[in-house]
Amino acid sequence: MTDIFTLDAEVRTDLGKGASRRLRHANKVPAILYGEGKEPVSLTLAHNKVFRAQQEEAFYSHVLTLNVDGKPVECLIKDMQRHPFKQVIMHLDFMRIDASHAVHTNVPVHFINEEAVVKKGAIVAHHVSEIAISCLPKNLPEFIEVDVADLEVGQTLHLSDVALPKGVTSDELAKGESHDLAVVTANAPKGKADDAEAEEETTEE
């Protein structure tokens, strides 16, 4: 797994759409490296190495090392453009990071113990697939684990209910209580929910 976090890159000076097209025909991926107050650098990477790496979920939320003409640079993947129907990576955006500066990125959510909620007769509904976080690079988690075992029918877990790893904060919650987004809900099966509403209406009548 470690190899997917290290990629070799070459600085490119031949820019423009035509140049990028030629690179792709040569099984290379055009990319750009920016951030940390330094000038953006245009790069070229081997498509087969990138394609293999991006198949791993951890690739998108892990500190990567780009060997730029032999010099290692730590960074995060910030954007990836894919071909609309071919299995081709069209372009990559990398953002430099500094070990002493907090990074802002999105990490995937892994929901666990959903079977315990299903046994209660509920249907689990995910509202998010990733969470925006801030932390120092050394504290960057590959994913956020959300345990739903204690979720009751009709209950919703919000961002404020999620236990984040040490040194990690939620970018959304930092904006205030109104950004306490719903993460997952245990919904009653549709038939049961309709029955309950019908009972309430009958009672009211």
Rank of each mutant, 00 (worst) to 15 (best):
V50W: 11
F51S: 03
F51G: 03
F51T: 00
R52F: 06
A53N: 02
A53S: 15
Q55T: 11
E57Q: 14
A58F: 01
A58P: 04
Y60L: 01
S61M: 08
S61G: 12
V63R: 12
L64V: 10
T65V: 13
D69I: 08
G70E: 08
K71M: 12
P72W: 07
V73D: 10
E74R: 13
L76D: 00
D79N: 15
D79I: 02
M80G: 03
R82Q: 07
R82W: 02
H83T: 04
K86Y: 00
M90D: 13
D93E: 11
M95W: 05
M95T: 07
R96H: 08
R96E: 12
I97A: 07
I97Y: 05
D98M: 15
D98P: 05
H101C: 09
H101A: 13
A102Y: 00
A102T: 12
V103L: 00
V103I: 15
H104W: 02
N106D: 12
V107E: 04
V107K: 08
P108T: 10
P108Q: 11
H110I: 11
F111P: 03
I112D: 02
N113H: 14
N113V: 09
N113Q: 08
E114H: 06
A116R: 15
V118G: 09
V118M: 10
K119R: 15
G121Q: 01
A122S: 13
A122R: 10
A122D: 04
I123F: 09
V124G: 00
A125D: 14
H126F: 03
H127N: 15
S129G: 12
E130S: 14
A132G: 14
A132W: 07
C135Q: 06
P137T: 13
P137H: 14
E142A: 09
F143D: 09
I144D: 04
V146A: 05
V146L: 06
V146C: 01
V146Q: 02
D147W: 00
